[in-house]
């Protein structure tokens, strides 16, 4: 099911990519324009994605994913918690700055993975301050500081 869904998504993106590519100037074979190569790539992408999708739909449904054992819901919950922490970090970084976002991200991810609060807080503070010092101070990377 996951494979079929992913391939259908890729096919849809390939079709959209083709529709955008053919709007670019094609030029001639002796003097290809900016759209010549993307169109060729888009046609290739549509063909291979279509073949892969047809193959996936014709094949019997086989669980190709790793054996998840008996704790599948807990595993899914942990992955979801990590993804949510990741997405939230991307959203809040510009507004609250790196140190606070990194602290919140680390704590949220550790709690989501089953850590206890004191461990998560301790690791979070050390990771946020340590990485800020390493990148912003030592390596001179301009990390967003937020309103503070």
């Amino acid at each position: 099911m996951v494979e079929r869904g992913l391939l259908l998504l890729i096919l849809a993106v390939a079709a959209f990519y083709l529709s955008e590519a053919i709007r670019l100037p094609l030029g001639a074979t002796a003097r290809p324009g900016a759209g010549w190569y993307p169109t060729a790539v888009a046609v290739f992408a549509c063909i291979v994605a279509l073949i892969a999708a047809v193959q996936a739909f014709r094949a019997p449904v086989v669980r190709r994913v790793r054996d998840t054992g008996g704790d599948a819901p807990a595993r899914r919950r942990r992955v979801l918690a990590t993804v949510m922490a990741l997405v939230a970090f991307c959203f809040v970084l510009p507004s609250i700055g790196y140190p606070i976002a990194a602290l919140a991200f680390t704590v949220a991810m550790l709690i989501g993975l089953g850590s206890r609060w004191p461990v998560a807080m301790g690791t979070g503070v050390a990771a946020a301050l340590g990485s800020y010092y390493l990148f912003a101070v030592l390596l001179d990377v301009p990390l967003p500081r937020g309103p503070w």
Binding site: T82, L86, F89, L93, Y98, A102, F105, T106, M109, L110, L113, G114, S115, T123, A127, S131, F135, L139, V141, L143
Partner: peptide
Amino acid sequence: QHVLATLVMLLCLVGAFS
């Protein structure tokens, strides 16, 4: 492993931004 995973993810985020 969960502490390692969290630290690696944070490094990925800073690395990508930088």
